[in-house]
Design a protein around this nucleic acid. Sequence first.
DNA 1: AAAATTAAGGACCGGTTTATCCTTATTTTA
DNA 2: TAAAATAAGGATAAACCGGTCCTTAATTTT
Lengths: 144, 144
Amino acid sequence: MFSKACEYAIRATVFIASESEKGNRVSLKQIAREIDSPEAFTAKTLQKLSRSGIITSTKGAHGGFHVLPEKMTEIKVSQIVVAIDGDTVYKRCSLGLSDCSEEHPCPFHSRFKPVRTGLQEIVENTNLKDLTSGLISGETFLKV
Amino acid sequence: MFSKACEYAIRATVFIASESEKGNRVSLKQIAREIDSPEAFTAKTLQKLSRSGIITSTKGAHGGFHVLPEKMTEIKVSQIVVAIDGDTVYKRCSLGLSDCSEEHPCPFHSRFKPVRTGLQEIVENTNLKDLTSGLISGETFLKV
DNA sequence: AAAATTAAGGACCGGTTTATCCTTATTTTA
DNA sequence: TAAAATAAGGATAAACCGGTCCTTAATTTT
Ligand code: FES
Ligand code: FES
């Protein structure tokens, strides 16, 4: 569904966001520990998220990553997905035809499209705040 | 969503099934041409489908692939998917946690699960006949 | 000013997926 | 019986993805 990099990206962003709510910046090392991901690889995807303006990074001692307050409701999961995987998840034909359209649909189109649209809707309508709340209340988890 | 091999597998099976309805067997060459897929690679996935009992192959001149009449309603898309990609599409946690459960859900679980279940339902409730009908009537396509 | 801390980023590695090529096995046709 | 047609399958290659390592840059602390 999502690439591994994208899965790490969402988990990392949710963790960073939840710590930002508490007023903390977090280091790469902490992130990798909390979401149980390979450190160097996670670093690459954090760089992309940072360049995309989803998270903010600060170098040097006491540096780390955080999410700006206004981003908590502004940023939707879809923006993370697009930054890492592109928009093919919502666009691509289920059977690999070069494009998906009503005019030239594959045999699975009519059944598949509602599902794909459902996915698109949840990622576009879920923001960071929506995801951190369960984490803070202890109902949801980012590893194991 | 599905692997390339799986996309070819579904397209190929739908084509073979539609020709079988007309009483024709089809060769690898024809299949690759009709679904616009690389011949040798497609051959491999057809072998898997054959070993899984989804399609039937016959060697020699005038040989080729076909689908047995009873399979037309018996075989569901899900069986093709499982034969090629396994069942991870319906099972895997959206954020890559080692398993997806209500007891230890990731932050996206409650939103994602209905979508994943929707996908599972359409692949499990769609059989070959369902997919060939549109193809035969010219409403759906297997290439470009 | 020096040392420590931290992110950025380039170079590289390994496995899986996708894809090709060539040989072998089986069946039909001539 | 020989030739042609066709699928099966092994060996190999290319591309991509996930992952590691090491050096550099920026910032803070001492
Ligand atoms: S054309 Fe295949 S999903 Fe739309
Ligand atoms: S636990 Fe992540 S989708 Fe269910």
